[in-house]
Design a protein around this nucleic acid. Sequence first.
DNA 1: ATCCGCACGGATAAGTAGGACAGCCTACT
Length: 600
Amino acid sequence: MRRRRPQRGELNRRHRRRTDEHLALAVPPAPPERSRSPRSITTNVSHLANFEIAKTLAAFADLLEIAGENVHRSRAFRRAAETIRSHPESIAALRAENLLTTLPGVGAGIAVALEELVDTGSFTSLDQLAARYPLSLLDVLQIPGLGAKSVRRVFEELQVSDLDRLETAARTGKLATIRGLGPNVTASVLDSIAAIRRRSMLHRLGTVLPLAESVRESIQRQMPEAMVDLAGSVRRMEPLVTGIDLVIGHHDITRAVSAIRDLPDTARTINVEASSIRMLLQSGVELIALMVAPEHYGTELIHATGSAAHLAQLGDLPLANTEHDVYQRLGLPFIPPEVRSGGEELTRARAGDLDRLLTIDDLRGEFHCHSTWSDGSASIATMADAAAVRGYDFLAISDHSHGLGIAGGLDTTRLADQRREIDAVNQSSRLTVLAAAEVEVDRTGNLDFDDNTLSQLDIVVASLHVGLRQPRDQLTNRLISILENSHVDIVAHPSGRLLNQREGGDFDWDRVFAVAAKTGTALEINANPARLDLDPSLARQALDAGCVLSINCDAHRPEDFALMRYGVAMARKAWARPDQIVNCWPYARTSEWVADHRRR
DNA sequence: ATCCGCACGGATAAGTAGGACAGCCTACT
């Protein structure tokens, strides 16, 4: 068995720019505008929020890397940044109590930097380094294909210190004169700059929803008699969300305001109006709470939930205290927030389609997860137990194949060893453990295992992890050849996107879905909040084309099975019915389906 | 720079292929 590896909390190690989106909020009063986050790394000295401190440490770590200094020092700062980013209490408060070194990864050196940072808004070694390498280089470092070495080189040789100058250097052809950067890189740099400029400052749903729920519960605990609900993009379960929107139905606005101010992880108040309050949390997520009269609660909640397009379709809303009543008076059944997109939900609601929407209870198992045999952190038995606790009937263990070396992928020998362990676990397990693999598709479209090996697996999941930036035709043909391989049952995270971090591949989805529908190969909705791939709009297209889908958490730890709710939300947004999701079927039907398309 | 096992010095997450270039850098979970 491979040695256990430390888990990386976040896939992205570089700081990201954030932008904002206007929020469709309720009727009177007009909602406060969300402002842009400060562009500079450090801001207002005395009230630095944890996310700002974390961002500064991470920026320093990146500058160290660009400067070519000790990599371990850089990693130490990056590790400390991660700790602080997810730390629930205020770091500024910890500093006041001289407890900084109690944070894991914060020793004497980083503590000194932190003290200075909290007290003055910066620290000496950062200032010195930033004098040599401007902070705007960190934007350049975000460009895929440009690592620390290349960033330093373009800075020193071409004086490229920010994205604008990078763009100029690329357009004038100067960039291609740098060692290691040819015409290909130049072309993709221009695309990436455009993508980064388009990139939003939205947060991942998986980051915000748990926070939002804990805020909601905390306020509900303080005001048990109030109605408190999440609203906005979080309630609609958008893959990327603006922040936390909360509606509080209570007559005593003063109490509601103080309940919010007393929340444990707030960093600062942004503004307070007659019936709304806007706060910044330590995590950098904004909270907007709207205090409304209980008699109009339902109407206000629908308004605050949006979407704007859904509201436009509804027209004028009657005043009522529950959402159900509002919809009823409009002659509609209750419309779940996930499908309030301003698409076909009214038509579908009238046609009775809402009753057929998938729910989390429809899931009977999963086909894509990992164990310590590759890059998972738990044994097969532990993963199986966790799946059984969720009430699943089956779980396919799909560890990586050897092509993905970085994840400790299995060769055929270890795959056979693993099969024996799966068989053994099955003897005592409460659910059926299936032998599967997440088989790597290489750049030319070949799978890691031969047909004979594949045919012995209960489920074959195929994934593209490399070469996702190939041109459209090449990429599409590569995926289609995998769909046409009769041994492949499921294609995992088809687009390869990482939300807020990496665009998905440029596939011709019409062609892909047409082939998948014909071959009966399932496409995945990956429930990991970093992916949520297929996106609901693509999943919807796939279903319309006649494809079947599979929703999987891609769990690397037992806790990851809890991510299923995100996958289910995406499927609901795509109007998926249980009969279109292969892991909602009884396993007997699934194995028929597998046998069926393998017979082709 | 931090942590750990020991009291100062060694380890820190891994391994490979591809692109552009001629030995280096980056991306991938």
